[in-house]
């Protein structure tokens, strides 16, 4: 097998395995742990990990928009809220099976995100951040206003679904596996998308939108579609969040949720896919840990955590890990003459 490779493409190995093989191994290990987890920890922890995965899906949506496409959003909590309320209203008002409400919530957010993305085309950088910030600020109030649908301040209570097909799982375990399955599918789709022509166009727009247009990239279309897809991911997360938490109320979707999403995607690592998972775990568990350290001032502890993290890992956790791993591998790579190469 190896003999077919031309001599110039000797792949660096660490411990006898290539980077791609290590990645596959790592992924397999994470999957095994993820599948085993509900059977070794208590129900409350299962619930927490489910929520962390839900955040990971939301963060992946935000990451596509901000990390890969360079559009800032301080308002993704609003799309999360729209997803959550779409599901809650469909369940509560119309008694539709929850399985159907998840894709519908995603589609509603896709459309809303796309439509929001259109006028947002005129805004860049900080101005876009402000516009999305306004969206997040308005969301809870709008939810309270349409009381007939949303239940106003009282919100809507949702009943946790039981495991189907007589699976030997309790409700928490079932929702955990359902979320895990959805997460795997959504992450696989995002990875494919980001590695292909569309993903390259998204990054090209982020890096140099004029050059991207000159290469034929319709940046307006890509930016609004990316806004839509980003909202779709976050909306599906919101929908799952409503089912798992069994409750939606306007105040669960305050501006802090949006800010938390931004924190999670930056800490996890912008423009990385795995960073979304790390970020999801971070925004769920680290504030709790901060509370354990100091009951009096958890906010201050959390703040210090954040500052130290950003100082030690400026590329986010996933970004920094990637760098270390690449350095490690290139240390073992056959020397490549990277400096000067003669023109043909």
């Amino acid at each position: 097998m190896e003999a077919q490779l031309p001599a110039t493409s000797i792949i660096p190995r660490v411990g006898g395995l290539t980077l791609a093989q290590w990645q596959r191994l790592g992924l397999a290990a994470v999957l095994i742990v993820a599948v085993a987890l509900p059977f070794v920890v208590g129900n409350y922890r299962v619930f927490q990990f489910t929520l962390a995965m839900i955040y990971a899906i939301a963060l992946l949506g935000l990451n596509m928009l901000t990390g890969f496409n360079g559009q800032f959003s301080l308002g993704h909590g609003a799309f999360y809220a729209i997803g959550a309320y779409t599901t809650a209203i469909m369940l509560d008002r119309w008694g539709i099976a929850y399985g159907w409400t998840i894709p519908v919530a995603g589609l509603v957010c896709l459309v809303v995100g796309f439509l929001f993305g259109l006028p947002a085309l005129r805004l860049e950088g900080l101005y876009l951040a402000l516009a999305t910030f306004a969206l997040a600020l308005a969301a809870p109030q709008i939810l309270k206003y349409f009381e007939g649908w949303t239940g106003g301040v009282q919100g809507i209570v949702i009943i946790k679904p039981a495991a189907p097909f007589g699976l030997p799982l309790n409700e928490d375990e079932w929702l955990y596996f359902l979320t895990l399955a959805i997460l795997i599918v959504l992450f696989a789709l995002a990875r494919n998308l980001l590695r292909g022509r569309v993903g390259r166009a998204m990054v090209a727009i982020r890096d140099h939108h004029i050059a991207a247009e000159t290469m034929g990239v319709n940046s307006a279309l890509y930016k609004s579609l990316t806004f839509g897809v980003s909202a779709l991911y976050t909306g599906i997360a919101g929908s799952l969040g409503a089912i798992v938490v069994q409750f939606v109320a306007p105040d669960s979707f305050s501006i802090f949720l949006s800010i938390n999403f931004l924190v999670g995607s930056v800490v996890g690592g912008l423009a990385t896919i795995s960073g979304a998972i790390i970020g999801g775990i971070f925004i769920l568990f680290v504030p709790n840990m901060a509370e354990l350290v100091s009951k009096a001032a958890p906010g201050a502890i959390y703040g210090i955590f954040l500052i130290v993290f950003m100082y030690v890992m400026p590329g986010g956790i996933a970004g920094s890990l990637k760098m270390v791993i690449h350095r490690w591998f290139s240390g073992n790579a056959p020397a490549v003459n990277a400096g000067k190469v003669a023109t043909k």
Partner: peptide
């Protein structure tokens, strides 16, 4: 110069073929 700084050399060139290709989201 108007390159995409954080993309690799290969990816930069691949973006150049954008207008020849059709695949979508």
């Amino acid at each position: 110069l108007a390159l995409f700084p954080r993309m690799t050399v290969q990816q930069n060139v691949m973006v150049g073929a954008h207008s020849l290709t059709r695949s979508d989201y």
